[in-house]
Design a protein around this nucleic acid. Structure first.
Lengths: 320, 320
DNA sequence: CTGTTTTACGTTACGGGTAACTTAGCGCTT
DNA sequence: AAGCGCTAAGTTACCCGTAACGTAAAACAG
């Protein structure tokens, strides 16, 4: 007991005793078992469960980096879960991670399985849903409105005179942020009298190569497409390479637009038309909201991190 | 007690009782507290601490993805620690994570602070050191020999006739894998009678922009450099853009070589000269070794994952 | 020097799950 | 009907850190 007091610097011990305790700690290489403290219910753990779809997508890696750095600065640790964009994986992960009595959870996406939702509600711990902004979150939400983001791109492209446009992305079992961008995009394009031809690559990840062959398939099916909107920048780069390889002049013959504004976009001599979101900041903000709730500070339950359309030079410009 | 037996499917209960227990579990939304089990020492936790320098570097994100997916398939979770390439951060993180009684640890790098090494030795849990292969690991090691990787690139470049070469990287307080690549590279180049001019960007991360301005500084100081080796591909892309922007013809006027073979390299119409390592596989292998040790299977303590030099087209080729 | 307060340290109990042991209850045998 | 074996279920103790409480000794006041 005295040792416990010394280690927690709680007071109530003499300097002599303190020295003796610390000497023994050093001699034995003693490390306190934090499990016991949390288990006894004296305090909550310093775990925060963080579910992320995958890390192959650079944007999620940035989000995670933002989360873990910020949590770390408060002495908290991330318990990672790569849920591969499936609600089933997420549910299993939630069940497991809740059994470890985490201080809170940060989840990517607003859609959860019914059972997962039950568990989350019953858990009584702070929960931050990130990525797509959720006006009625389980607890807290931070992200952007993906529908609006897609809508803005659709409006931008139609304002440049594009009318027959294509979309290349991957297919998903459940609705997600990319689906919402597509919905917003279609609404804007169709509202302006245009039409969107969709090409969804089945059973594939939203990376460079599917962007390449998805473009090939799209153009084979419909060769009057003037401009293509991609699920993300990686796919857009793939499409760009396909078009350039086929001798098409971008943006004269065909326009290319992505989403996410990857840092590597600056490698290119011309800027990819895209949509910028500060992914690192999104992660940091999620962790800050979590910490605010844990320390009892007031927090707004919704935080729109905002996005910025990058006009770029892979679509026509207004004067052309 | 009976409920505990039912939930663990241990036997020793009637079907009727089982049904009653499960009904109550469902009604109450009961989730077992795994902390109690681990705390009581009946079994080890399913946490594995994973320290990674940062996730901004795509290669580490891939390693982590490999680790977490594989651990997840065994029902284990990663507790993340972003140690920012500093031994001090790593030591603090190790202390914290050990107090959570993890099943094992996966650490990036072979260098640890003396106190960290003590704690690791005393912990008695499996430890996998990844990234640079360590012939005398604390416990297990998986990675590549970075010295050899740098050496091979040096030999390759000198075999193409390059003699005045440059290196652009970041500076580090402590030796790390990049330092070893540089050492190997210098040894090969100097062994072949050439010389290496180094440009280390201080206090910066090994990303695109430092590659850009590091190249500018290097060429300003020494303009007869025929070829530049970069700490990684991101920096090499930055250098490439600087050179192209200055009107230099790559590879006629200057050669560019990176390390890591980023997937995005295929965006370019010509392949970056680099060194390929299967980062995902490295992570998976680390997790497999961890699991093998935890389940008592025999494991070799060292595993060389290997690398492959990518000749690419950003350096002269042999016939030129 | 007595009575009161303060300081330093010790003791007990608790948290939730489970190993190890005990008890109750049932069916079967002879 | 007594005895045995088996199954189902209950009881006790433990893991380790700490809140709450207890106690002895020192410090202080009057």
């Amino acid at each position: 007991m005295t040792a416990s007091r010394v280690l927690r610097e709680e007071g109530g011990y003499s300097e002599k005793t303190r020295a003796k305790v610390l000497a023994q700690v050093d001699a034995l290489g003693y490390l306190p078992n934090r499990l016991a403290t949390v288990f006894a219910g004296d305090q909550s753990s310093t775990f925060v469960g963080v579910s992320i779809p995958d890390l192959g997508n650079e944007v999620f890696a940035q989000v995670l980096e933002g989360i873990d750095r910020k949590l770390g600065s408060f002495g908290y640790q991330s318990v990672l879960g790569l849920t591969q964009h499936t609600l089933h994986e997420e549910e299993n992960w939630i069940r497991t991670v809740l059994s470890w009595q985490p201080a809170g959870l940060i989840l990517t996406g607003r859609y959860h399985s019914p059972r997962a939702t039950d568990m989350l509600r019953n858990s009584g711990i702070p929960i931050v849903e990130i990525w797509d902004l959720n006006s009625s979150p389980l607890d807290m939400s931070v992200g952007i409105n993906h529908f609006d983001s897609g809508f803005d791109m659709g409006r931008y492209l139609t304002s440049l005179g594009y009318s027959d446009v294509g979309y290349v992305g991957t297919s998903h079992d459940t609705a997600n942020a990319a689906t919402e961008r597509l919905n917003g995009f279609c609404k804007a394009v169709e509202g302006a009298g245009g039409a969107v031809v969709k090409q969804l690559c089945l059973h594939d990840t939203a990376t460079f190569y599917p962007g390449f062959y998805g473009t090939e398939q799209l153009l084979a099916a419909k060769n009057n497409v003037e401009c293509i909107y991609y699920q993300n920048d990686a796919m857009a780069f793939g499409g760009l390479q396909y078009c350039v390889g086929k001798g098409l002049n971008v943006p004269i013959d065909i326009g290319i637009a992505g989403w996410g504004d990857l840092p590597i976009a600056s490698v290119m001599n011309r800027r990819l038309t895209s949509c910028h979101v500060s992914h690192l900041k999104l992660g940091q903000r999620a962790a800050e909201m979590m910490m605010a709730r844990l320390t009892g500070e007031p927090v707004n339950s919704c935080h729109d991190i905002g996005f910025r359309l990058i006009p770029g030079s892979t679509v026509r410009n207004n004067d052309s």
